[in-house]
Amino acid sequence: MLNYIWLGMLVIGFAVGIMNGRIEAVTKAAMDSAQTAVQLSIGLLGIMCLWTGLMNIAEKSGLIRRIARAVRPLMRFLFPEVPQNHPALGAIVMNLVANLFGLGNAATPLGLKAMTELQKINPDKDTSSNAMSMFLVLNTSAIQLIPATIIAVRSAAGSRNPAEVIGTIWVATLCASITGIIAVKLFSMYGRTKQKGGTAKWK
């Protein structure tokens, strides 16, 4: 699916760019974006090392296992394929908590750690497991207690009450999260792309 979307965006983009006479701007955007991607990744490097280092201590000391055990019922519902006490569960919980507190710098490395752990128990290394899909969808609709960026933008624009949207954001996010969880559950049960070990896999 990503193959087609990626191809489509590029082909349509260049075609429309030629028709609009914006082809120079399009070429420049391609080059600039490539550079931005590397800058973004390298910018993450230090923080990433910091958190994977700390997480290693947390794991070796058994702290993560204890955290995972505390929220076991919820985790068992969301990630039924992941064995109990698996380090992936601890990393997932830490990532979701970091998201909740808006600690973006911590959330991404913790999420990557979780993905690495989930990949270890993935029966088909090229294909997303149900647990990975659930984790990803939870992350794209993650609830944040204080949406700091948007409050800052509103306050800079002279809002009388910049933080008044916190409540509406909570409601909208919760709707998105619940929908996402239901969608993943339905897809993993009835979708045509069953997880390996289940039934047939497409393509």
Binding site: T116, K125, T127, M132, L136, C175, F187
Partner: peptide
């Protein structure tokens, strides 16, 4: 970022589910 980091090529229904959630939001 997340799929790239572990080398997943077939994302199955993940994108569809995420977009459905996004539309609802």
């Amino acid at each position: 970022v997340y799929f790239g980091a572990v080398g997943i090529k077939n994302v199955r229904y993940t994108l569809a589910a995420a977009l459905i959630a996004d539309f609802v939001s």
